[in-house]
Design a protein around this nucleic acid. Structure first.
Length: 280
DNA sequence: AGTGCGACCTGATCGC
DNA sequence: TGCGATCAGGTCGCAC
């Protein structure tokens, strides 16, 4: 379940190897539901040069020199992994890219067990309209702006709001739960009922959690690996996600798991108490 | 208009 | 042992 820190980790690794690289070959091993028709896809990419790798929300954007871009969404199980010549194809592998940069060759495989992810070629206008649907980038705006984005008149729960990519871009289930725990706010709270102190605390928590996770190269709760096939190190620093039935590190209460915003939701009933808070 | 929820997909795990 | 049910979850599209 790659969210902002995982996608950003992959972006950095791809950028380091592929910015300025020429796409030598593209081989579609397996196309599927979301996948573009293979010949058109291959023809649009071979011979092109990648100028830069960017990220917006959970979307990877491969800028192409001729204009336009290849966009990639990993959804839950999408992976980009660099492989060597001895690599043997796995049944979930879908596309193999070969690049050349400074006379060095790089081979990259796109695989996706659940087939939810997609690769798509878009022109500049198409790219702009897609990128425009996303909200604030949480790591490049101030706490105040982030807190302001959480100031809504909405009947939704605060967790549902955090997951809304058009409000804040890049938060998924893990970081929503972790941010709410660090801010001491129960996920089921009505978003419009948060106090301004709570919005600020939550905005700070979102930034802290995302930054800390990025330092650890993301969280590997299930499938996520980076382009070297390595797992992220943030798993051991999670305080509530995946810890149902275990004691809260802060207060010792048992972490609960419920369904909120149609997602498995983890929280500490004591640290994330309902009702008045007295410390503010 | 805003919100909730099913569908998409496969593999791991659980209960009988 | 085997088999079906359940769960994981980002986002789209549909229904209310």
């Amino acid at each position: 379940m790659p969210e902002l820190p995982e996608v950003e980790t992959i972006r950095r690794q791809l950028h380091a190897r592929l910015a300025g690289a020429k796409i030598v070959s593209v081989e579609v091993w397996r196309s599927g539901r979301e996948f573009p028709r293979s010949r058109k896809f291959v023809n649009a990419l071979v011979g092109q040069r990648v100028t830069a790798l960017e990220r917006r929300a959970k979307l990877l954007v491969w800028r192409l020199r001729s204009g336009g871009a290849l966009i990639a969404h990993l959804k839950m199980t999408g992976r980009f992994v660099f492989v060597d010549d001895a690599y043997r194809r796995d049944k979930h592998d879908r596309v193999r890219f070969t690049f050349e940069k400074n006379r060095r060759r790089h081979t990259l495989v796109w695989s996706d067990v659940r087939q939810f992810g997609f690769l798509k070629i878009v022109d500049n206008a198409g790219l702009e309209s897609i990128l425009g649907t996303y909200g604030l980038e949480p790591l490049t705006v101030s706490v105040d702006r982030l807190a302001e984005a959480l100031h809504v008149s909405s009947t939704r729960t605060i967790k549902a709001l955090l997951l809304d990519q058009s409000v804040i871009a890049g938060i998924g289930n893990i970081y929503a739960d972790e941010s709410l725990h660090r801010a001491g706010i129960r996920p089921t709270r009505c978003a419009s009922r948060l106090t301004s102190h709570e919005r600020t605390r939550l905005a700070q928590a979102v930034q802290t959690v995302l930054r800390e996770s990025l330092k650890q190269r993301g969280t590997s709760a299930n499938d996520y690996v980076d382009t070297a096939g390595d797992r992220g190190g943030f798993l051991k620093l999670l305080r509530v996600y995946g810890r149902a039935g275990e004691p809260c590190y802060t207060c010792g209460s048992t972490i609960k798991k419920i369904v909120c915003a149609q997602r498995g939701t983890h929280y500490c009933p004591r640290c994330q108490r309902l009702g008045l808070r007295f410390e503010e």
